[in-house]
C-alpha cells in the first residue's frame, strides 16, 4: 500500500464535514456533532487505502468491512460514500425524508454499501466478530473495522464482544472507540466514566493504540501500524472532540456537546464559511 497523501485526505475530510452540515440542516434533525468527531477516521478508512471496498459489488465477500456501531453518526458515512461516488449529493440530501433510503440510522436492507443496521447502541462489535469469524473460515484476507462511541461502551454487550474477539484471536478485527468525551445527557466523565479504555482492552488481550483521532497523520499511522498485528484483535482509542472542525462555531451556542441536533440555517452558514 502506498503512503496516503495527507493533504488530500484532510481536504476530503473537510468536504465530508461540509456535507454532514448541509444534509443534517436540510433534514432538520440528526447528529452532526457525533458525525464530525469521527470524520478523520472514516475519511482515512475510505480514502486512505485502508478499507478495500468495491463500488460495483458492495457485498463482495472478500471486501473489508466498516460497521458503524454508533449508528446515529451515519451522516458521516453517507457523506463519505457520496464523496466516494456511491451516491450523488442530491440523493443524500433526502436524508431522513419519508421514502428515502438515507434513514436517520443505517439500514442495510435498503443500501448494499451499509454493513449493518444499527441505531440501538452496543451491537456493532458482536456483528464485527461474526464477520471476522466468517472471513477467517472462508480464508479471506478481509479486515473488519467497527466504530463505537465512548458512551456506547457502557453497553455490556460491547464487553461480551471484546471477550469473544479475544478468545478467537481475531486479528482481522479492529475496534475504533470514538472517544469524544460526551454522550447524550452529559460528559462521559459524569455519566459513566469507563476510561481508560486502553488498559481495559489490554486486560482483555487486545492490542491498543491511543491517538488524537482528529489529526489525520495519527489516524493514518495507527491504521497502518495495526495491520502488522497478527495474533490478537486491535483497538484504536481515538481521542476526539464532538463537533471537531467547527468548534469555534459550536462554542458560540454554549453547548459543547451539541448532541442530536442539526445546525440552524444561520449557524450552518457560519460553519460552512468556517470550513471554506
Amino acid at each position: 500500500m502506498s503512503t496516503p497523501d495527507l493533504a488530500k485526505l484532510e481536504a476530503t475530510a473537510k468536504e465530508i464535514r461540509r456535507k454532514i452540515i448541509k444534509i443534517t440542516t436540510e433534514a432538520g434533525s440528526g447528529h452532526p456533532s457525533s458525525s464530525m468527531s469521527a470524520t478523520e477516521v472514516v475519511t482515512a478508512l475510505y480514502f486512505g487505502g485502508f478499507l478495500r471496498h468495491n463500488k460495483s459489488n458492495p457485498r463482495d465477500p472478500k471486501r473489508d468491512r466498516f460497521i458503524l456501531s454508533k449508528g446515529h453518526a451515519v451522516p458521516v458515512l453517507y457523506s463519505a460514500l457520496c464523496e466516494a461516488g456511491y451516491f450523488t449529493f442530491d440523493q443524500i440530501m433526502t436524508l431522513r425524508k419519508l421514502g428515502s433510503p438515507f434513514e436517520g440510522h443505517p439500514n442495510m436492507a435498503k443500501l448494499d454499501c451499509i454493513e449493518a443496521s444499527t441505531g440501538s447502541l452496543g451491537q456493532g462489535l458482536s456483528l464485527g466478530v461474526g464477520h471476522a469469524l466468517a472471513c477467517r473460515l472462508d480464508g479471506y484476507d478481509a479486515h473488519t473495522y467497527v466504530m463505537s462511541g465512548d458512551g456506547e461502551m457502557g453497553e455490556g454487550q460491547m464487553w461480551e464482544a471484546i471477550a469473544s474477539a479475544s478468545k478467537y484471536k481475531l486479528s482481522n478485527l479492529t475496534l475504533i472507540i470514538d472517544q469524544n468525551g460526551y454522550q447524550q445527557t452529559g460528559s462521559h466523565a459524569e455519566v459513566l466514566d469507563l476510561r481508560p479504555f486502553d488498559s481495559k482492552l489490554k486486560a482483555f488481550g487486545w492490542e491498543t493504540l491511543v491517538i488524537n483521532g482528529n489529526v489525520m497523520s495519527e489516524v493514518v499511522d495507527a491504521l497502518g501500524k495495526l495491520k502488522s498485528i497478527k495474533d490478537r484483535p486491535t483497538c484504536i482509542v481515538s481521542q476526539t472532540k464532538k463537533g471537531f472542525g467547527i468548534l469555534p462555531v459550536l462554542e458560540t451556542t454554549g453547548d459543547v456537546n451539541y448532541h442530536g441536533k442539526p445546525l440552524s440555517k444561520e449557524l450552518a452558514e457560519k460553519a460552512l464559511a468556517y470550513l471554506a
Binding site: 433534514a27 434533525s29 436517520g104 443496521s117 441505531g119
Partner: peptide, 8 residues
C-alpha cells in the same frame, strides 16, 4: 417519533 427511523 418520525425522522430517527425504525431503530428507535
Amino acid at each position: 417519533i418520525g425522522e430517527d427511523g425504525a431503530s428507535q
